[in-house]
Write a protein that binds this DNA or RNA. Structure first.
Lengths: 157, 157
DNA sequence: GTCGGTGCAAATGCTTTGCATTGAT
DNA sequence: ATCAATGCAAAGCATTTGCACCGAC
C-alpha cells in the first residue's frame, strides 16, 4: 500500500483524529487520479470504484489532506478549486491553453533556483510556489488567429 | 487622463458596446487601487468617492476589463477573486508570507525569459502567467515593511 | 428612438456547517 | 464507552442572471 496512507495516518493521529475507511478511500481515489483533480471529479471516481462517500466528507477530507501537506490547492480558475498531490514530488508547474483549456504539467528546476534567489534577495525563506503559464497551444492559436482576423474585418466596417 | 480609458473605450466600441459613466468610474476606481484589488474592495472605494455603482455592474465591468486585456484575475486564494491592472505594465509576480499574509509584488525579467523558453520548447505561444511564491518573512513585520517600501521605490523608477 | 446598460433581487454553484446517527479506538 | 466522523440537507458566500426601467449613441 502507498506510503502516503501511513503519512496521512500519522498526521491524523498527531491531531487526535481518526483514520476512517472513508478517509482511506478518498486518499486512494486521489492516488488514482495522480495529478490534478477537482472535488466533483474525485467524488465520481470514488462512486465508480463502488465507494459511496458523501460530498461533505470529500471536502472535509480534502481540507485535512491539505493541512497534512499531502495535497495543495492549484487555483486555475475562479469557478472551483483544483487540487494536486504533492507529497514527495518535485513542485509541478502548469501550462494552460487559453482557448482549448488543455493542461500540461511540467517540472522546472531553473524556476526553483530563480524562486530561491528572489527570496534570498529579500531575506525570505521559500516554502512553496505556484507557477501557471497561460498560452496558446498550436491548435488553439490557429483558432484565435482566425477569430482575430475576423474581428479586424468587422472593425473596418 | 489615463490612456487606459481610451483603451477601454476603443475595446468597447470594437464590440459594439457603450462607454457609460459607470464603466468609466469603475475603471478610475481600479486605477486608484493601483495594484491588486477585489470586487468588494473596489465597490467600497467607489462608494467612498461618491460613485454609487451596483455590485452587479462592478462584476460585469470587471469581466469586460478582463476581456479587454486591461486587468487579470490573480487567484491568491479560493475564497474570492483578486484582480490586477496589467495593461502596459510588466507582469507582476507575488510573494506571500505564510505567517503574516503580507504581500510583496516584484517583477522578474528572468522569469519571462524562462517562461517563453518553456513555451517555445513545447511549441506554445505565451500570453500571460501567474507566479506566486509562498514564503516566510525572516523575523517579523519590520523586515517585511522594508522589503515592501524598497519594492515601491523601484516601482516608481 | 434604439438597443444596450443598470439596479435590484433572485438564482447559481462550489464549499461549509448543524445535527442526529454511526463507527473507530 | 467515548468522542470524533459521517450523511443529509440547509446555510454561506462570491458571482451571475432575469427583468423592468434608464441612458448613450
Amino acid at each position: 500500500m502507498a506510503p502516503l496512507c501511513a503519512v496521512f495516518r500519522r498526521y491524523l493521529r498527531s491531531q487526535g483524529l481518526k483514520y476512517t475507511t472513508e478517509r482511506a478511500e478518498i486518499l486512494e481515489g486521489i492516488i488514482e487520479c495522480d495529478g490534478v483533480f477537482e472535488a466533483e471529479e474525485l467524488l465520481l471516481e470514488l462512486r465508480r470504484g463502488g465507494h459511496d462517500v458523501s460530498k461533505a466528507t470529500v471536502y472535509r477530507t480534502i481540507n485535512l489532506l491539505i493541512a497534512a501537506g499531502i495535497i495543495i490547492q492549484a487555483l486555475f480558475d475562479s469557478k472551483q478549486s483544483h487540487y494536486q498531490l504533492i507529497y514527495g514530488k518535485a513542485p509541478r508547474d502548469h501550462m494552460v491553453c487559453l482557448h482549448t483549456g488543455k493542461l500540461v504539467e511540467f517540472v522546472s528546476p531553473e524556476l526553483i533556483v530563480l524562486r530561491d534567489r528572489i527570496c534570498r534577495e529579500l531575506g525570505w525563506e521559500p516554502v512553496a510556489h505556484r507557477f501557471q503559464i497561460y498560452a496558446l497551444s498550436p491548435q488553439g492559436s490557429a483558432v484565435i488567429a482566425a477569430a482575430v482576423s475576423q474581428e479586424e474585418e468587422s472593425d473596418r466596417g
